[in-house]
Amino acid sequence: MSEAKTGVQRLLREGPKAINLGLKEFAEALAAQGAKVVHVDWSPPPPEAQELADLLEKLL
């Protein structure tokens, strides 16, 4: 099996072990089903950081 297939296959074999970004309820529902989950207390990046990332994206 090529390495490329491993990521999807690992997900199906092991079940979700999740990082949750956004609605906290989604993390709670995963935990209630016995899945491992870590919720991120997310905030929008500062505008300068976004602009820098966009610029890098264009350059690279």
């Binding site: 072990k17 990082i19 949750n20 956004g22």
Partner: peptide, 11 residues
């Protein structure tokens, strides 16, 4: 969670 295999994104 270094063994994480999925990001759930609802941003």
């Amino acid at each position: 969670l270094p063994e994480a295999n999925l990001a759930v994104i609802s941003l």
